[in-house]
Simulated scan of single mutants.
Amino acid sequence: MKNIATLTMNPTIDVSYDVDKMQPTHKMRTENEWYAPGGGGINVARVFVRLGGHARCYYLSGGATGPALDGLIDRHQLVRTRIPIAGSTRVASAVLERESGKEYRFVPQGPHIAEREWRECLDRLADVECEYMVLSGSLPPGVPDDYYARIAGLLRPRGIEIVLDSSGAALAAGIDAGGLTLIKPSRGELRQYAGRSLDDVDAIGKAAMEIVEAGKARFVAVTMGHEGAVLAREEGPAFLPAPRIKAASAVGAGDSFVAGMVFALASGKDEREAFRFGLAAGSAAVLRAGNALAYPEDIERLLARIEPL
C-alpha cells in the first residue's frame, strides 16, 4: 500500500443537525448535532485511512475556530501538518428537514489568505514524502487561481502522482498545466471547463476524452450524482450507472469517490477496478446522514452491485 498526502486550502468545521421543519424567523430546535473536520483533502484522508491506507493532511487553520478544527482532526487520528493563518477557519452547516427529507447546506466562502501564508504552504509541501498528492477543494480568497498548478509543477518532477479535484478557475488552471494522474470533476464542473452543454453520457465522455488525448491527465472520472459516472482513459470512455440506494445526505460523496479510487490505484488495481471502487465509495457516502462519509462495509456491499467494466 502506497501512502498519500492531501492538501486542503479551505477546510471547514462541518456541523450537521436535524430539524422537524425549516421556518423563517422561528427558533428551530435541533437534534443529532454532529461535528467533523471537513474540506476536500481532509475528507479524502478520513476515508482513505478507514480503508486501511496511510495519509498525511496538509491544511490551513486559524482564528478562533482554528484550534477546534485541529482538535477534530486529532479525534479522527489523522496525521497532520497545519499551516497557521490569521483568518478564521470557516464553519459549514448541513440541516436535514425531517418533514420533507430535504437537506440544506450552508457553506461560507472562507478566510482571506495572505501571500506569506500561501507561500509558507508551498514551502511546507516542497519536502512532502508520498506517492500520491491529492489537491482537493476550493481555493480561498487571496490564493492565486494557478496555485494547484504550481504545486503540481513542484512535486511532479519528484515522481509524485497528482490528483486534482477542484472547480472553476483552479480546476481549469490545473488541467491546462497538465501532467495530472487523475482529475474528478462533476458534470457541472466539466461543463464549465469545456464551455459547452453536456447533456448526455456521450457528450460527457467526449469532453473528458479531450483532456486525456491532450495529455493533460491520464484519467478523468466525471461524477453524475445518482446517475453514475464516466471514466475517460487512453482506451476510451466508459460509463457505469450508480447503484440504486436511498440517499440520506449528499455531503462528501465526491471526496469519498476520490478516496476510493485513489486507494484502489495505490493498492495496485487498474483504472477500471479503481473506477468501480470509487463509484461504490461515492455511493456509500450518501447512505448516512450528515458528514459521516463512506465506510468500508458499505463500500464492499455496494461494490458487489456494480458491474465490471
Rank of each mutant, 00 (worst) to 15 (best):
K269W: 09
E131Q: 14
K246W: 05
A45I: 03
A172R: 15
R105M: 11
G168P: 03
G178I: 09
G205L: 01
G260C: 03
W118F: 15
K246M: 10
A173P: 04
G159S: 06
R98M: 14
G137R: 01
G71A: 14
T12A: 15
A242N: 01
A259C: 10
G153N: 13
L231G: 09
L198C: 06
A232I: 06
L78K: 08
L265N: 11
K2N: 13
D74Q: 14
P296R: 08
A232K: 10
D14T: 00
R244L: 13
A221S: 14
A92I: 00
D176Y: 02
S256L: 10
A194T: 06
R158V: 05
K102Q: 15
V95I: 15
Y59A: 07
A274K: 07
V91F: 01
G53D: 11
I73T: 04
V19F: 12
V91C: 12
P157K: 11
R150P: 05
Y17V: 04
P140S: 06
G62I: 00
K269Q: 14
A281I: 09
T30H: 08
A86K: 13
S267R: 07
G290D: 06
A289S: 14
G153W: 09
D199Y: 04
E33S: 08
A94K: 01
T25D: 15
G62V: 00
S166A: 13
M1W: 03
Y148W: 07
D176A: 12
S267L: 05
L154R: 13
Y193L: 10
C121M: 14
S283A: 15
L293F: 12
A247V: 13
K102W: 06
A170D: 06
V212C: 03
H76R: 08
A304H: 12
G40S: 10
L7I: 11
E131N: 13
P140W: 00
G38C: 10
R46S: 12
D14M: 01
I4T: 05
P140A: 15
V286P: 00
P296Y: 07
P296I: 07
T8Q: 10
L69E: 05
R187F: 05
L164N: 09
R288I: 09
L231I: 09
L69M: 09
Y295H: 15
I83Y: 00
E271F: 07
A304W: 08
R75Y: 04
F106W: 08
D20S: 13
L198A: 03
D123M: 06
D255V: 02
F257C: 03
T81Q: 14
V212H: 00
S167Q: 14
E273M: 09
A94Q: 03
V47T: 13
Q77F: 03
V222P: 02
I162N: 09
G254T: 06
G52Y: 04
H26Y: 12
C121T: 13
D20P: 01
T89D: 12
G87K: 01
Y193R: 04
A149Y: 11
E120H: 14
S100K: 08
V286D: 01
R272P: 02
A36N: 12
I162A: 05
E120Q: 13
H76E: 15
R187S: 07
L60M: 15
K246R: 14
Q77W: 01
A173Y: 05
T81A: 07
D123Q: 12
G39Y: 00
I113D: 02
G41K: 08
V49N: 01
G142F: 08
E297G: 05
F257E: 02
A242E: 00
A203G: 08
G87L: 02
Y35M: 12
L51Y: 02
A45W: 01
A169H: 13
E131R: 14
